[in-house]
Each structure stands twice: as C-alpha cells, then as structure tokens.
Design a protein around this nucleic acid. Structure first.
Lengths: 196, 196
DNA sequence: CCTTTCTGGAACAGAGATGTTCCATTGTGG
DNA sequence: CCACAATGGAACATCTCTGTTCCAGAAAGG
C-alpha cells in the first residue's frame, strides 16, 4: 500500500471487484456485530469480517463513516423492497402484507436502524423517504375504500406494522420459531389489527 | 467520609433516609440518561442526578452494579404492576388491557430493558418471572373460554402486547401524540389483534 | 512473470471513561 | 451544639478505543 488510497481524488471512481467484495464483507459483519452489541468496537467488526482493523479504517476512515454506510445501505434496501411490493396495485391489505413480506427479509438490519438513531443522522436519510410516502398513500387509499380501519391515524398504522415485524423477528430469534411461522403469525395479526 | 462506607459489613443494613433518597435520584437519572444514549458515561449520570461522580461510585462501585440495580428496579416495578392488574379477575381481554395500562406507566424503563440486554443479564432476572407466569395463565384462560384467539401461540400473543406497547411509546415520543391518545390507540389495536 | 493493488500487523499518540484515594466541607440527627 | 454521616472535588493510574503511519508480504491482473 505504498502511496495513495483514493485512486482518483475528485471523481466517482468505480471500485475494483476485490474492493467491492471486501467492502461488503465489512458492511455485513458490522451489521451482525452491531446488532448484538450497539457499542461494539471496530476491532470486533474487523474480526467478524475476517479482515485487519487497518483495512476497516481504509474503507471507512472514521467510525461515523461506517455507520453512515450502513444507514445508506439499509435505505437502499428499503427502497428496493418497497418497489418490489408494488404498493399501488391490488387491495390495500394485501399490498401491506406484500410489504411486510419484503421488509421481513431485511431482518437484523431494520432492528439496527430502529434503535440506533445515529445511523439515520449520519447517512442523510431524510424524514420522508419514497418508501414512507408510498406506504402513506397506500394507507390513505385503504382507508378511503373501506379496507383499512379509518378511525386510527396513518402514522399509528405504520407504527403497528413495524411493531409487529419487530415482534416477529424477536419471536424467531429468541423463541426459535421458524421464520416462516413467525412471519405468518405476524401477517395474521396484522390483518386483524388493521381491519375496519 | 472518614472511614467505612458499608456500616455493617455482613448484614442487611437498612439505609438512612438520606442515602435512600440519593440512591433513588441516581437510579432515576441513570434511567433517563441511558434511555437517551445507551453508552452515556457515569459522569453524565452523575450530572443528571445532581451529584458528584464520586458519589455515584460510592453507591454503585462498578458500572455493572448500576446497570444491575436498574434491572432489579424495573423487575420490581413490573411485578407490582402485574399484581395491581389483578390478572385472575374478570374477562381475559379486559384483564389484559388493565395490564397494558399498568405497563404503559413504566414507560422509558421498559424500553431500556428491552434493548439493553445487559440489564437482564447483570441483575439476575430469570426467564420466567411471576409476572410472566401470571400473563401466561391469563392467556390460557382467555383461550379456553373463547375470549382470546386460540390459534396463536401464547408467547406470540405476549410478544404482540409488548410490541404494541412499544409502538405506543414510540408514537408518544416521536410523533408527539398525547400519552392517553397513544394508549387508547394501543388498547384499541390490541383488542382487535387478540380477538378470536 | 512482473507490476500494481490490496492487505495485515506492529507501533504510536491522543482522547475519554473507569475506578481509586484522600481531604475539606456540608448536613443531619441526637 | 456537636459528633458523625454524607458529599463533592481534585488528583491519579489504568484501560480501551480510536485514528494514524509505515512496511513487508500476499493476491490480482496485465
């Protein structure tokens, strides 16, 4: 590593395949380590990723850079999940279930984002993402056509969905419930909870 | 403070009124500070409690002692709340709502216990507390007399209750919803979610 | 095969938290 | 009022994490 780490100082340089792989390994390891302990050290992350602590610093100069990268990563995955769910198609409750299914796959990452507010702060995730807006529109649509409970606030319905997903993850993690079972419990309960 | 801090070395000595007050101030401050930032320093706790850092150390020699004390404190409050709810009286769904009402009052403390697993580990809270068992019995009773959904697992129903409480706290904290409103949303949703 | 890229380890300085000791001061209670 | 309990602050050693630099060796890639 004789000289310069950032090959093209000012431009958006494409990463080599090797670097991309290492980068992803660090990111994934960070998610799983930080999920277990929010204040884990960068040394722990490096060890879990199977790389040297120096290498972690090479990719993410400061701790906050790593956290921000995790935040951005999750943001992208959420956006992709939201699109795959095609929230504007079909009956609202079913669209909501499709969304749950997609979000459920994100697993650990969402838990992390939820209770470490710094990820959001560092990575420039704004209050209202496209995914949030799409869900908001979905709920409004469902309330208007009478398929969703019209008496509760939109943000509450949204919180309930997150809470039930959270419960399903916990159920799978702590009780050893198979993931598909936990998910189906989640969907069943959500269906009743959001019904008019 | 010339000499000895633990007046009677081996016995269960009753604390003086002064010490009891200081102890509680530190404990309460610790809860509110750690809620905001799980890795806050003991200096922060001391400042919030309005005492010197030395004093904190006098009451809780090591950091883990403080965390354990918080855990024990919450455990006691949960037990008291569970008893006040009189889970063995009246219809199961209403008993469950009484419990929610009691738990909701515990607020911050529960959130803390939920996502800082060390509290549980340090303070000797066992897996199955009396409160857990009482809730378990309540759910069984409700399922047998047909007032609670019999198709879902007991532990799931339990998780759902916690999840909705969590959602209500978040709603109050982040959305600025008045507490009583958040609670009534929580109860309304729970009622539908646990219905057969 | 040989050059460039990439990596791991060691060694270092600085910051912050922890836990300890000692002492002067305040206050509480008898 | 006076003895003793209780406190706050300063000073200290220690520890861990962080972020940095430098270099030798492994791995890619032409």
């Amino acid at each position: 590593m004789g000289s310069d780490d950032t090959p093209a100082p000012g431009a958006a340089t494409r990463e080599s395949a090797t670097r991309a792989r290492t980068r992803r390994a660090i990111l994934d390891a960070a998610v799983s380590v930080l999920t277990a302990d929010h204040s884990a050290s960068l040394g722990d992350v490096a060890e879990a990723a199977g790389v040297g602590r120096t290498t972690v610093h090479r990719y993410f100069p400061e701790r906050s850079d790593l956290l921000a990268a995790i935040g951005t990563d999750v943001r992208d995955r959420v956006a992709a999940a939201s699109e795959r769910a095609r929230l504007d198609e079909g009956p609202a409750p079913e669209a909501m279930e499709r969304l749950c299914l997609e979000y459920f796959e994100l697993g650990d990452r969402m838990l992390l984002l939820y209770d470490v507010p710094q990820f959001v702060a560092w990575s420039g995730i704004e209050e209202e993402s496209a995914a949030d807006l799409a869900l908001l529109a979905l709920v409004r649509r469902g309330q208007q056509d009478g398929t969703l409970d019209p008496e509760v606030d939109v943000s509450w319905l949204q919180d309930v969905m997150w809470a039930l997903l959270y419960a399903a993850w916990i159920q799978a993690r702590d009780q050893g419930t198979p993931k598909h079972t936990a998910l189906s419990l989640c969907l069943r309960t959500l269906r009743k909870a959001v019904a008019p």
